[in-house]
Simulated assay, not measured.
Amino acid sequence: MNLVNDTLELQEHVNVSHNFDFDLVKPFIKRAERKYIIPNISQKEYDRLLSDAITDADILKIKTLLTEASSNLAFHLGFTQLVVHVTNYGTVQTDLENTNAVDWATRRDLQRTYVQAGFEALDDALKAMELYLDKFPDWRDSEAFTIFDENFNKRTDEFQRHFNISNSRKTFIALKPIIREVEEQYFLPMLGKETMDLIKRRSVIPVLMRALELAQKAEVALTIAKSVDSGAFIMTGSSAIYRWEQLPWEKSSEYSDERLEKLREAKQNAGEEYLKKLKTLLQENPEIFPNYISNVSNTSGNILKLKSGLAL
């Protein structure tokens, strides 16, 4: 059993004829849910959503969004194969006498539509799940969600506040390895683990709130600076969008190499400036950050710009 199980359910989200053979797309539905849905919501939460016993309106709405995502992403994955049939006599392609195959431009736009519609629905579902977090305990306690608890920016909206990623949780997830690298390279040597943990607790003390804000801004800026060279993101204006799937007609970036370098340099400089402000704040409040003061007493106390990053 999957989120989409027959032609009627499929027709709610994808334009197919009433006599469409559901068995043609079924393998791609399984693959789409295995590849995109389950890793993002956890296997336990996926199994729960398949139950017919769900009556909660909010959960049913999210299930509908995930079903929409599954339907569109299945057609994206199977786009080139749905008209191909493997028989005992070889591989053939459907070609009806009174119909014309769509041209390449239409195929391009159609496949892009499947990709965009599928991931927009997935993002909307994940955003709603964050809003109703208590209704999804299996997801909340799974690796699909808890891997973000270790960072200064724990949620999509927190990262979005400082740089436009189109409110995409999938983009946020894709940035996760870079965020982890940034904390290891810049924050851990500068702050020490104890001070990092203190700031991440999200205290209502004004000084700690300001420290978290500066840490979040620095983390976002330095993450974007590192992501520029990864090739995994499309840079448009002031936004970064994760490349869901490599499509032949799309480029890795809409920025020229020169503009990408300017973006990288600007974000690197911005991140370093936020780190300096954070350092000053910590030094001015030794009673709140005793572990930081103890840590810098054994060093020069200055931020040094090194090729590998910043250090005390």
Rank of each mutant, 00 (worst) to 15 (best):
Y186N: 08
L188F: 10
P189T: 05
L191S: 00
L191T: 02
K193E: 13
K193W: 14
E194C: 03
T195R: 03
M196Q: 10
L198G: 11
S203Q: 00
V207P: 09
M209G: 14
L212S: 01
E213K: 14
K217H: 00
A218V: 07
A218C: 09
E219I: 02
V220S: 06
L222P: 01
L222M: 03
L222E: 00
T223P: 05
I224T: 01
K226Y: 12
S227F: 09
S238H: 12
A240I: 11
I241H: 13
Y242T: 06
R243Q: 13
E245D: 11
Q246W: 07
L247G: 09
K251Q: 14
E254P: 10
D257C: 01
R259L: 13
L260A: 02
L260K: 05
K262T: 10
L263I: 04
E265L: 15
K267V: 05
N269G: 09
N269V: 13
A270V: 02
G271L: 09
K277P: 02
K277D: 12
L278H: 02
L278S: 01
L282P: 01
E284C: 07
I288F: 07
I293A: 11
S294G: 02
V296A: 04
S300F: 09
G301W: 05
N302K: 15
N302S: 08
L304Y: 12
